[in-house]
């Protein structure tokens, strides 16, 4: 009889323990939840991004402080006009509304000489908009300061899109060969196109497109030929 009582107690203890353990685990879940690796990566990117932005903003503030001090010294209208005109020139140059000159490269991209076989669907021998987009991006990575394609200045809202046999840049139809001029450190720009693994090299070697690069000590990149029109965006009002 005694034996049965002991066994009964053990049974009750076991049941009690069984209830207690999952309860405990559930309680802990909130504090110790799991997140996926990609969430961590995302957060890490955000942190790195903001750190760099803070450095940028500090620099920008310093520059604007200088400008403010300059404005404080301005006494008459003539000086004010001078300051403003200088500023306009600066932003015009940055956004592509001035003709620029400097050292750089001239890159000619031409369709492949491969003969077209009737009925084939292989279009790898033709220069596509994506090819030009990639080359432009590579040039920007290498620090290109001004780029033009066959005389059309590439500015920040220049689309580069295919349209049948032509590529449209700034709403002008361009036909191969495409002559890309880029101002910057000519050695770096050259490498951005021709280095092993670069997109330009791939076009030349794997796609048989004809690429020709020349380093020049002085090239001219024309200004954006349309006028600046702003229809949709406006300044953010203060006090929001």
């Amino acid at each position: 009889m005694n034996k049965y009582i002991i066994k009964g107690i053990i049974l009750i203890m076991c049941i009690f323990l069984g209830i207690l353990i999952p309860y405990q685990i559930r309680n802990n879940v909130e504090d110790n939840s799991f997140v996926s690796l990609s969430t961590i990566k995302e957060k890490q990117n955000d942190v790195d991004k903001i750190k760099k932005e803070i450095i940028d903003i500090k620099k920008l503030t310093k520059e604007q402080e200088k400008k403010f001090q300059k404005l404080e010294d301005v006494n008459d209208t003539r000086e004010m006009i001078e300051v403003l005109e200088k500023d306009i020139e600066k932003y015009k140059t940055l956004s592509g509304f001035n003709d620029l000159e400097g050292p750089g490269i001239v890159l000619t991209v031409q369709d492949s000489d491969k003969e077209y076989i009737y009925g084939e669907s292989d279009s790898s021998g033709i220069v596509h908009d994506a090819d030009i987009q990639n080359i432009l991006n590579d040039l920007k990575v290498a620090g290109a300061e001004a780029i033009s394609i066959s005389g059309q200045r590439v500015i920040l809202n220049s689309p580069v899109k295919c349209g049948g046999p032509v590529i449209r840049v700034n709403n002008k139809n361009l036909i191969a060969p495409f002559v890309i001029r880029a101002i910057g450190d000519s050695k770096k720009l050259y490498a951005a196109i021709d280095a092993p693994g670069a997109y330009g090299r791939y076009l030349n070697d794997s796609r048989d497109l004809k690429l020709e690069i020349k380093e020049k000590s002085r090239i001219v990149v024309p200004r954006y030929s349309n006028t600046l029109e702003i229809n949709y965006m406006k300044l953010v009002e203060e006090g929001e």
Binding site: L84, I88, Y91, L156, L228, I230, M233, K234, L235, V236
Partner: peptide
């Protein structure tokens, strides 16, 4: 002039816009 400056600053990205 200052209106023109504002326009180019907005376009080249140096102003917050909406």
């Amino acid at each position: 002039l200052s209106e023109e400056l504002e326009k180019y600053r907005m376009f080249s990205g140096y102003e917050e816009v909406e």
